[in-house]
Amino acid sequence: MTALNTGHEAVSSVTPVRRRATTRRRAGLAGYLFVSGYAILLLAFGIFPTVYAFFLALTNDRGQFTGLNQFIKVAQDYRFAPAFLNISLYLVMWLLSVVVLTVVVAIVLRSRMRPRLSAIFRFLYYLPGALAGVASVLVWLFMLDPAVSPVSWLLRSLGFADFAAVLSPGDLPVILVLIAFWTGAGGWIVVMYGALNNIPDEVLEAARTDGAGPWKTAWHIQIPMIRKWIAYMAILAFAGGTQLFVEPQMLQTASLGRVSPTWSPNQLAYVYAFQHGDFNGAAAISIFLLALGLICAALLVTRSDLFKVDES
């Protein structure tokens, strides 16, 4: 300590550099301490489960390495292809409706409506988001039951005489889109509206002086300027859509078994784990879904400039 002090005094001209070096080291150590709690959670519930799922998917129930056999086994399961097909059909309809409608609605709310009225609309559209998850499915079970539905006239005129007719397996993608749209679209409208608000007024003003009408402005200026937000929404909506579990699971319960219990890939993984006791197979299906989620995340992180990883 004393030696260090003398050295300190002797080379006083170097001190600022050294002090900066020690502060940096001190800050580095502190950095580790500050992130430690989160890092433990990340390891325990992010990294480790992923690694463990990979391990399970590459081995059998006795822990022997089996290569890609688990993946081949689940992919050849007669329920595997239909589950992915179901989810694809749902995803196409869900993405089309959520992207087109939220963008159109947000643009109208932003440019063609008095701010007061626009705020009321946004709030009312957004409100059902509070019922996300189980609650939304239950509400829609009632909405789709001609016996109690406030739109039973509509259901009957579409040819659905009773609840059983509505809940036929072929209708599931439409029902799921209705539920997803009901709980999710309002939030996205609010977010898109926020993104539109970030476009400087001068830009819109300039377009108006150049003679662009509201629809031209929307098409040539507003939509291109929020393009990355639309991509952001589409990718998150896609990634979330691949993971459907609660909604088809509850519709299955309510349909008294007419809807397949393995309608979505996540349900199939659930059946593997809980009914067959086949954790290796369940892990293999999870890996397929994990890969889809990872691809989406990697796309957004690397291909868009939406996320800031380093402050410049």
């Binding site: 519930f45 489960p49 799922a53 996540n266 990872l294």
Partner: peptide, 11 residues
């Protein structure tokens, strides 16, 4: 960015 449901079964 990954949906939370992706990790549920592994967890």
């Amino acid at each position: 960015i990954m949906p939370t449901a992706t990790l549920v079964l592994p967890i």
